[in-house]
Nucleic acid binder design. Structure first.
Length: 571
DNA sequence: AGGTAGAGCGCG
DNA sequence: AAAGCGCGCTCTACCT
């Protein structure tokens, strides 16, 4: 094992399997990349990093990538909260390692400065320690915590996966999403009309707004302020409870259709319009920041342009470089499959085997339509109690009792104020002090009716959170394993000749198939055309591998929807 | 003027 | 047809 720290210069410490130091190299910052490259080639070590988000970008810029890592910051966050760790005291005492992932959302300029120049002048982001002694001490705490835990194998797998996530996150940012600005502009023009002069409202929005004003008989009303709009609707005799799409759709009035159209256009224009392109796309690449484990459940977060909310309308804008293709893959019904596998519910496993899980539920005669199957399953995962969801979930409970018992138990634990844990050992946060206090008060002798009702509601809210946590969190672990295996096997492909290189993806990705996008249960790989089929095969094999690693012996499969997009292919 | 909360909507 | 989980971002209203 090796440790690495960047405080102007660098230190590389060799460690043996027991964590004892066997050698040490120091050097100046400018010599870091060559030194790391040499170690990587000769030893292929597991690099111990204080914070891969800070360590990787300058290395990637110099064409150096790490195959394996242990990210002290990311792993600390997991271990300090994991129920599997018997004595989390030492970890919790080392609070500097629990620094928030991001102090604030960086401006576009900071984005560039932080990650493209790899500006690391001592300190470290968010106060994460970078001194070699602090790193060695934290590594020792983490090893002790894992080895003495109630699930060392699970936590080792999670630590490795989360750490690869740190590497992948940095690599995704460095490579960027290949973004066809002209295609984006064409879609905007088709939907919003010709691009207006700066900061003007696009023509189609103007047109929709005029129709709304005519229909309301209110020539001046603005549509961008919900309170004003709601008052205007009321004045026009429209009894809308709110201005949300859901409520408006239920209303029959000539103003509603153009209003909904206006909202749709406005959303596209403000969130992903011409301004967005100018701000976030440079030289054909969109480079958001990814934060592995940025969500409590272990899902990734992202910042900078809303990378995880790219509208489906704009997905065609992702376009491979000349000579390259995009291979997109997503898992069909990941979360219910994960539930079936982790609970060991063989009936549920069979419903999804080799086919659409919802269709399988229809085939089994549990509900008449696919749509109802979906509502039932989502209700089971989210804790739906009303409407169709409340009506359909009980049918699932009698057909898939094992799977339902797992989520129902997680919900009961949460309602009691308890903690739940994913398959690999990530635990839900404990309830806030306010929550516990209100539960105690409500159970006291002189609690009011209102206090009790409020406490019951917040208990059920927390139950729905913990119910979903075990499934969403374990699904995130499956996805992490999937991308780790995809990355590993793409690295095994031969580099392609220079003429086919996607140079804009940076030196590390220029000659090889590489990941360019990851969204919970979906990935996109940018691959040289001659590697399209190999990349697709790698993605499928990785999904099978992730299933076997997390759920050995399970019948549950993880089928993919996979598509190879070749921009030069004839339509 | 500047910070924050809420509404609303995009994604899974 | 139905609102149950997790997010980030933009705009507006409202606060200091």
């Amino acid at each position: 094992m090796l440790g690495i720290a960047g405080d102007g210069g660098f230190v590389i410490v060799d460690l043996d399997r027991q964590g004892h130091e066997t050698g040490r190299i120091t050097g100046a910052a400018e010599d870091l990349a060559p030194a790391v490259r040499l170690h990587e080639q000769r030893r292929s070590p597991r690099w111990v990093l204080a914070d891969s988000a800070e360590a990787c970008p300058p290395l990637l810029a110099d064409g150096v990538r790490l195959a394996r890592a242990h990210d002290l910051r990311l792993v600390h966050r997991i271990l300090a909260g994991s129920e599997l760790v018997r004595d989390p005291g030492p970890l919790r005492g080392a609070a500097a390692w629990a620094a928030p992932l991001e102090e604030h959302v960086p401006s576009p300029e900071e984005h560039a400065a932080l990650f493209e120049l790899g500006a690391s002048s001592g300190g470290g982001r968010g106060g994460v320690p970078h001194g070699i002694d602090e790193m060695l001490a934290e590594l020792a705490r983490q090893r002790t915590a894992i080895e003495g835990s109630d699930g060392p194998d699970r936590l080792r797998l999670l630590a490795a996966g989360e750490s690869v996530g740190g590497l992948v996150a940095a690599e995704l940012h460095a490579a960027g999403i290949p973004w066809d600005v002209e295609a984006h502009d064409a879609i905007l023009r088709a939907v919003l009309g010709p691009r207006p002069a700066h900061e003007q409202t696009p023509p189609e929005m103007v047109r929709a707004a005029a129709e709304v004003r005519t229909a309301l008989g209110d020539p001046r009303v603005g549509l961008d302020s919900p309170p004003r709009l709601l008052r205007a609707l009321h004045r026009a005799g429209i009894d809308a409870p709110s201005t949300s799409r859901w409520d408006l759709e239920a209303i029959d009035h000539p103003a509603i259709a153009p209003l909904l159209r206006y909202k749709k256009l406005s959303r596209l224009h403000t969130a992903n319009g011409w301004n967005w392109i100018r701000t976030w796309v440079h030289e054909g690449r969109y480079r958001p920041l990814y934060a592995p484990g940025g969500v409590v459940t272990g899902r990734w977060a992202a910042s900078g342009g809303g990378a995880l909310q790219i509208p489906r309308l704009l997905r065609p804008v992702l376009t491979a470089d000349p000579g390259w293709v995009l291979v997109g893959a997503d898992v069909a019904q990941l979360e219910p499959r994960v539930l079936a596998a982790m609970s060991g519910d063989t009936a549920m496993a069979r419903a999804g085997a080799g086919q659409d899980l919802y269709a399988g539920i229809v085939d089994a005669g549990i509900v008449p339509t696919r749509q109802e199957a979906k509502i039932a399953v989502l209700g089971a995962l989210y804790g739906g109690t009303t409407g169709d969801s409340g009506r359909l979930v009980p049918r699932l409970r009698s057909t898939f009792p094992v799977a339902m018992a797992l989520v129902d138990e997680a919900a009961r634990t949460g309602e009691r104020g308890g903690t739940v844990t994913t398959l690999l050992g990530r635990s839900s946060p404990p309830p806030e002090e306010r929550w516990s206090r209100s539960q105690r008060t409500a159970n006291g002798p002189d609690a009011s009716e209102a206090e009790q009702a409020l406490a019951r509601r917040s208990a059920r809210d927390r139950g729905r959170f913990t119910r979903n946590f075990v499934v969403q969190g374990t699904a995130a672990e499956w996805a992490l394993t999937w991308i780790a295996l995809v990355r590993q096997s793409l690295d095994g492909l031969d580099p392609v000749p220079e003429h086919a290189a996607a140079a804009r993806s940076g030196p590390v990705a220029a000659h090889r198939a590489h990941l360019v996008y990851f969204l919970h249960d979906e990935i996109v790989v940018h691959a040289p055309r001659e590697h399209a089929d190999a990349a697709a095969a790698a993605i499928r094999a990785a999904a099978e591998g992730a299933g076997r690693l997390l759920f050995p012996g399970s019948e549950v499969d993880f089928p993919l929807d996979l598509e190879i997009r070749d921009p030069s292919a004839l339509p």
